[in-house]
Write a protein that binds this DNA or RNA. Sequence first.
DNA 1: ACATGTGAAGCGCTTCACAGCG
DNA 2: CGCTGTGAAGCGCTTCACATGT
Lengths: 198, 198
Amino acid sequence: MQRLPLYLQCLDGLAAGTSLISSEDLAAEAGVNSAKVRKDLSHLGSHGTRGVGYDVEHLRFQIQTELGLTKDRAVVIVGLGNLGRALANYDGFTERGFSIVGLFDADPRKIGDTVDDIEVEPMEALPAAVGERGAEIGIITTPARAAQEVASALADAGVRSILNFAPAVIHVGDDVEVRRVDLSTELQVLSFYLHRNE
Amino acid sequence: MQRLPLYLQCLDGLAAGTSLISSEDLAAEAGVNSAKVRKDLSHLGSHGTRGVGYDVEHLRFQIQTELGLTKDRAVVIVGLGNLGRALANYDGFTERGFSIVGLFDADPRKIGDTVDDIEVEPMEALPAAVGERGAEIGIITTPARAAQEVASALADAGVRSILNFAPAVIHVGDDVEVRRVDLSTELQVLSFYLHRNE
DNA sequence: ACATGTGAAGCGCTTCACAGCG
DNA sequence: CGCTGTGAAGCGCTTCACATGT
């Protein structure tokens, strides 16, 4: 089901006039097999029209519903180095229904800075802020050494989903979903493919 | 083989004195099954010692060799918005043997800016720069609408691996490896899990 | 005794191929 | 006639379990 956001992105990239799309065309756009597309979409009870294809607008709505994108999600970011600041300013989040409701950093010199009109708060303010503002997702953009402590703090505060950009593996309870995005890992995988063809 | 960078990261995170590690311990650290670790490591002819475990330093060397991390890789970044600038400044790249050899942007106002001591050049300079500086990897941090054009330009210039942060699906020839990192997609997947438990 | 390395079984995802429907 | 929806086959990854080696 990790492909649904990909499909959504493909639908967004379609020419403005397109109101119908076949599984074949969507598959080509997404770079996957068309049977896979049909199976994925059938899982959401998506009734396309046989002989015609899928209604783009309806499909978009169904995917958004399945992903729980119909309501806004409150997000906090911990660690306002270059990456944290870039994410705080990233329009793509707000455009897709993710509201940033808090920025936190352990460095006293950064407290009080404003990034994207939001004030940076100290770590001590995190637990209360998460509860009061209903934050469900935490983004970690700290150095590796701070990542585990921050993850635990987020989990304790009630955050149930963590997106970890720190180059460290973090461990939390089973009730918290963690996704790891490591920039160096991505380059290393590319390096592997380059190396393979040498 | 996408797990090798993860293992490498776990090895980096180990306490300083640790010179031996069992598949069980490494698996726990990485959050995977221990049989998987052994199978992965056996694929690189990694001879651990039965009854003892793996030599951490030797293992690290073997993984780095397998990933082709023994030589530096030259990287160019296209698109110097917030994210591009954050990546240009990201120490993790240089620490792991990836050298940034060029920064490019289509916006004339950004040309000549320096980011991390590197000057931003216009898109027209890309083809020659990639060839002269031996760039093998291109990072795309442009808006979605520019991503395809930039990807094609990179491929034409001779780049064989692309890391795409733009929220768009790009299409290139089979001789170019593309990895997609979409920040919104990550949040959408987390949203799905949140939604699932509601 | 203990941990690796690995056949073999298991499992889920992917792909095929076609029946069913518009 | 065209495209969806889906059983069934295929395929690769994961996991088990144990023989092997130190």
